[in-house]
Design a protein around this nucleic acid. Structure first.
Lengths: 237, 237
DNA sequence: CGACGCTTTGAGGAGATTCAAGACACGTGG
DNA sequence: CCACGTGTCTTGAATCTCCTCAAAGCGTCG
């Protein structure tokens, strides 16, 4: 097979399909090339496997190429809660930035394929590619923003949270070129409940209620949005 | 008064009392000096005034020198919730990093004095002082971490949240050299309730309950921790 | 010293949780 | 290809935590 090198070449940053979602967005041609050379590419994890564990050393920022994952926060009592869901093109690992040890565990919700920008290289590259620091800082800020949005949800009722969750998943899938009105949820009701801070039974009940209202059609993890405006109206006062 | 220049000199980064809490921590002598030259120093805001507004352009990272502030998140309906409380030595403004527009409003809870590292300079300095980017990235990660801690609290009862809040304020004051067992809360019950996602009446009731249990002594905003271990036990299972 | 805002306290009610049991989907092995 | 078993999802009923509304007490600041 003469193609091995070619395949490796095919998944470097320069011609990655995620280039306008991932780190390279905003970098120059040459910068992307030098970035491509130091990125660990094509790592694969199966459903249920960890990308990294809470307490383990921070090894770098990860860019999801395909598949989705959940980020679990762990408190001193060992309780786990879902901090965030990560979709293709999104970056994770920021929870290891401050202490150099991960505060969260990242678990694949389905088979995932990802790249990693090694931690040591981030420091070295800060001099070579100043804009890389800018981009990472910006992405880190996005994490912060989304946590704030999440906190805002906590003041609202369970119904509003579920409605918002469904719309957000839809929007994020749309941004990545997937169908926005009909999709399969990669996470369990338990995960959704944990993420929204409600019991998984409540998630079930509310989804069923939304179906009764003609807003969605739901069958286990398969979801179809029938009336998006109606969903939006539920949490936009 | 020949002292004007001397006073200005006195509040530069090189001999700031917050140097091991603020940005300079981890920078070399010369790096701190060049940092000191571009920082806008000694800005003052009275209680209730804003350090910046949601929607306004991001002007840079702010370091609180004295006084405390609250960070308000605003959703599309105009509802405000307290995202975080900021104490002296802490950095804020990260909510403007991703979009270059602030997503939050920062309000002084008492008279505050702060410095600002201008946004444009951050980019320029990334080349000159590579470690500055590292530090900002690290600090940004801390924000993320504390939001995760906050989310973990949301799965717990109102009593556990209040107990945790009291201990956290105590710890943070201690880290900054203030009395850890007796202090005055700079925020209202309303603010605390918003931060913990509970009604302000519930905050009052629970604090009174803690007093009945002999854990604290509370009189309006004046707080004394009598039995810290007891408080800790309330949320450590 | 008076007024306003913040804090405290009470009663009643709504929303969400918990516990329990049954239905369904999915993967495994026969 | 179907039967089986396990884990997930759904549904119900009772309970409880916390919220809402209301009013009085207290502190602070002009």
């Amino acid at each position: 097979m003469a193609g091995t090198a070619a395949i490796k070449k095919a998944v470097t940053c320069e011609n990655c399909s995620l280039d306008n979602l991932c780190i390279p967005k905003g970098l120059s041609q040459t910068e992307v090339e030098s970035l491509g050379e130091i990125v660990n590419r094509n790592t694969i994890r199966q459903k249920g496997e960890a990308l990294y564990h809470a307490g383990s050393a921070f090894k770098g920022i990860i860019a999801l190429r395909s598949g989705s994952a959940k980020l679990l926060g762990v408190d001193r009592n060992g309780n786990e809660i879902v901090v965030d869901f990560m979709l293709p093109g999104e970056l994770l690992g920021f929870d290891g930035l401050s202490t150099q040890f991960h505060q969260c565990t990242a678990i694949a919700l389905e088979t995932v394929n990802y790249c990693r920008l090694p931690a040591q290289q981030i420091e070295l590259l800060a001099g070579t590619i100043p804009s890389l620091s800018q981009i990472l800082l910006q992405r880190s800020g996005e994490q912060f923003d989304s946590q704030i949005q999440r906190m805002m949800l906590m003041r609202r009722t369970a119904e509003e949270r579920v409605a918002c969750f469904i719309v957000q998943v839809s929007e994020r899938l749309k941004a990545r070129g997937y169908a926005e009105l009909e999709f399969r949820l990669s996470m369990s009701r338990e995960d959704i409940g944990s993420y929204l801070c409600i019991a998984h039974e409540t998630v079930s009940r509310i989804m069923h209620h939304f179906q009764t209202l003609g807003l969605i059609e739901v069958r286990s993890r398969q979801l179809k949005i029938v009336n998006k405006k109606g969903l939006l109206a539920l949490y936009s006062e």
